[in-house]
């Protein structure tokens, strides 16, 4: 029995501690937004946030997430279905083509922007260097990350004003 928090909710389920977290999420919880592109930590499609930090869920054993907090792509949009500014920016800037890398990209972006809403180019590249994309050529992804940072800053400014 493993207990952890997933997308803000307490979860408890039967899983072997040596099972991979990607399988626990996809098969155990039906959260299929987390993708498997290589199963070896080399592509980033399976990226989730563990206590706010991006990790490869294909390398992560379930025993390691006990009592910790996980965020998957399903936990990014708000409950009412409204997209997160990062998701909006990815669509507006054309950063999504086939979309298989997208969940991982969005999560790596979130981890970056949670710390810094106005990252330098090098910081964006570093933050996304573990997420491969074969479709976009990455240019539009960089634009989307910048745009998302701007929008998040606006949001927090507005909340500050309110």
């Amino acid at each position: 029995m493993i207990r952890f928090k997933c997308n803000g909710k307490a979860v408890q389920l039967e899983a072997e501690p040596e099972a991979r977290v990607i399988d626990v999420l996809r098969d155990g919880l039906g959260l299929t937004g987390t993708k498997e592109g290589c199963g070896r930590g080399e592509c980033g499609a399976c990226t989730i946030l563990l206590d706010g930090k991006p990790v490869n869920s294909c390398l992560l054993l379930a025993g390691k997430i006990a009592d910790r907090e996980i965020t998957t792509i399903e936990g990014i949009a708000s409950e009412d279905g409204a997209l997160h500014p990062i998701q909006e920016a990815f669509l507006d800037k054309g950063a999504v083509q086939c979309g298989f890398c997208t969940p991982g990209m969005v999560l790596s972006t979130k981890a970056l922007l949670d710390e810094n809403e106005t990252p330098e180019l090098e910081e964006i590249e570093e933050a996304l260097s573990g997420n491969l994309c074969r479709c976009t050529g990455y240019g539009k992804i960089v634009e989307a990350v910048r745009e998302a940072g701007q929008r998040l800053m606006h949001e927090s400014d507005q909340q500050g004003d309110a």
């Binding site: 930590g41 930090k53 991006p54 990790v55 490869n56 992560l60 573990g130």
Partner: peptide, 9 residues
Amino acid sequence: VGSPQIRNL
């Protein structure tokens, strides 16, 4: 070393 994901683990 690797990627941010790898370095976090």
